[in-house]
């Protein structure tokens, strides 16, 4: 687990610090977790149209998800999920890769381009205009869900007991 924690820092971004997402797996994960429409809208706003070639055109496939017996024990195969991946190379040489649940070819392509651009001078603009808003939206979604769940938490009352 410690090894995993090292290589995979959780996304921790606030809008005021565009440089906060500096870890490659964090931004690839954030792009993967963002709804295709949101990503597409942010990408259009950014207005970059870099020249690139496909290393791998958007491709739909499967990843077998795994669970653990008793939540903590041996691994087993739970079932598959659809995943779309894409790899690109910018005219300037940087390579970008994307994998995400679902079947959105457009999202995979934009994500791969973002990954590649994060290695260029456009990184700061991308972090501010694409990644930070996506991270903000993600944490807002999560907080809303967690507050809805918390509203259904049971408060127990101790009833008076005995003959009194």
């Amino acid at each position: 687990m410690s090894e995993k924690a090292e290589e995979h820092n959780p996304v921790n971004v606030d809008n005021s610090d565009p440089n906060a997402i500096s870890d490659r797996s964090a931004w690839i994960s954030l792009l993967a977790q963002s709804p295709a429409e949101d990503l597409s809208a942010r990408w259009s706003e950014l207005g970059l149209a870099p020249k690139f070639t496909y290393l791998r055109r958007p491709e739909i496939g499967l990843v077998m998800t795994q669970g653990r017996a008793g939540a903590v024990g041996e691994r087993f195969n739970l079932g598959e999920a659809t995943v779309t991946r894409c790899s690109v190379r910018l005219a300037t040489g940087e390579e970008g890769h994307a994998y995400a649940l679902g079947r959105s070819a457009r999202k995979a392509e934009i994500s791969a381009l973002c990954d590649a651009l994060m290695q260029t001078k456009h990184a700061a603009a991308l972090a501010t205009k694409v990644l930070a808003p996506l991270a903000y939206a993600q944490s807002a979604r999560r907080e809303d869900a967690a507050r809805k769940a918390a509203a259904t938490k049971v408060e127990f009352f101790t009833m008076t007991r005995g003959e009194g």
Binding site: K4, E7, S25, I28, G67, V83
Partner: peptide
């Protein structure tokens, strides 16, 4: 019941990423 991240080792880069979240039900 809730959402869990699906982590995947990306062969192209040798790093672990999250592919997204799936909702699952677990009963013990």
């Amino acid at each position: 019941i809730g959402a869990v991240a699906v982590e995947f080792d990306m062969p192209e880069l040798g790093i672990t990423i999250e592919l997204g979240e799936v909702t699952v039900t677990e009963c013990e």
